[in-house]
Amino acid sequence: MSSAVAPIFGVLGSCMGCMIFVENIAKQEPSAMNLMTFSTFLFIAAHGLIFTSKFFTVGNKIPLKGYVWTVSMFFIVNVVNNQALNFHVPVPLHIIFRSGSLLATLLLSVFLIGKSYSIRKYLSVFAITIGIVVCTLATSAQGGDSSLSYEEASKHYKEWSIGIAMLTFALLASAYLAICQQQMYETYGKHPDEAMFITHFVSLPFFLIMGGDIASAAEKLSASAPYSILPGVPSLWVDLAASCLLQYYCIKFVYQLNSRVDSLTVTLVVTLRKFLSLIVSIVYFKNPFTTQHWLGAVLVFAGTLAFADIWGGKPVQKKDDKKSQ
């Protein structure tokens, strides 16, 4: 477990730090979400091209055809999740909503793969669902500003509803992505560094569809106030660079952690990271968070941990482990 200490702190530190810069960009220039997604993909793809693929001199362990569904779903999930921030979806709700991935995974695993689960897991998923609904309704109530005209309030609510619909779609797509990745690894073996590079690199051409939006957002970032420590450098470009770097390390440390500890520990660390990111978002940016929000958040995170059997249940030893002893 000592070898996992560095990846654990790496996941917590880099992912939480990344969320600070992402939310700062989202608050000042919400139309920059496609640019932010593209920049992250470009950074990770460039790093993989140099250090993993070594400019395509290292052959792939997994054929490109094995990546088709994974790349498609990966691109869609990332773009839709970030775009949802452009439709008046607060970052705290965004974090909580994405924490419901276990619900989507359970549903798709039951209907697509035919898996069965214990009553405890179904109850935990029910708690997660209720938590998300509670938080969503609380945020919806906050949107009802009496100072807005009927037309403005109606437009705000419609855009917010679109954002929630996008998060719901991304939640299901993310669960399907996990199934695609699992099937790919079962077929070709686990090659996380290669998968990380290929999924980002092959996705880059898709951003041509959003070329105009990305270019427009780049102009807006260039017009932002200069960074205090670096005179002449737009502050939002500094935030974007920092978010790309931290996002890379966040993904990298999750892959490292996955190779050193069991999936249960990974689930716990990722859940803890989401909860801490939520706290940072509330405190650092002074986002409104009512008692109703806290109730929903507790249901979501407690349900997630219950689903992962954090509080009980002795892990079953594999037959191979017993033989080795």
Rank of each mutant, 00 (worst) to 15 (best):
I62A: 00
R260T: 11
P90L: 01
E219I: 03
N287H: 12
A6T: 08
A138P: 06
A6L: 14
S216F: 00
Y122W: 09
A165G: 11
A141N: 12
L230M: 11
S14T: 08
I310H: 15
Q317N: 10
E186S: 15
A104Y: 06
P7G: 00
F207H: 06
F197M: 03
S140N: 15
T271I: 12
F9D: 00
S154N: 05
S116I: 00
K155H: 09
M210C: 13
E152Q: 08
H293G: 10
P205C: 05
R273D: 15
Y117E: 00
V254W: 04
G163H: 05
M16N: 15
D309H: 15
F197R: 01
D262T: 12
M33A: 08
A308I: 05
Y117H: 00
M73Q: 10
D193G: 07
L268V: 14
I95T: 04
L137E: 15
I130Y: 04
Y117I: 00
A104C: 06
L305Q: 07
A223N: 02
S53A: 02
L103R: 01
V233K: 08
W294I: 11
G232N: 05
C18S: 11
A138S: 12
I76Y: 09
C135G: 04
Y248H: 09
P92R: 01
V300M: 04
A242G: 07
D262E: 11
T291Y: 14
L123I: 11
Y185M: 14
S147T: 14
P192A: 02
A104G: 01
S281W: 02
V22E: 08
V269T: 06
Q325V: 13
V270S: 11
Y188S: 00
H156R: 15
A178P: 07
C180R: 05
A84F: 03
F55P: 03
K54L: 10
I132V: 10
F74E: 07
F97C: 00
D309G: 11
E152S: 09
L236H: 01
L93P: 01
I282L: 01
P288G: 09
L299Y: 07
S53K: 00
F197A: 02
S154V: 04
C15S: 13
A6R: 10
P192M: 02
I214R: 00
A104V: 04
F51H: 03
A170C: 05
L85P: 05
G100V: 04
T199D: 11
C180L: 02
P234I: 03
L123C: 12
Q325W: 13
M166S: 08
S99P: 03
V254Q: 07
K121F: 02
M73I: 12
L278C: 05
G13Q: 03
F111S: 06
L204G: 05
L236C: 04
M1Y: 07
E152H: 06
P90H: 03
T291E: 14
K252I: 09
I162T: 12
G212Y: 01
E219L: 08
I20M: 06
T105H: 06
L278G: 08
T168E: 10
L236F: 03
V233A: 10
F207V: 05
T168I: 11
Q182H: 12
T70H: 06
E159T: 12
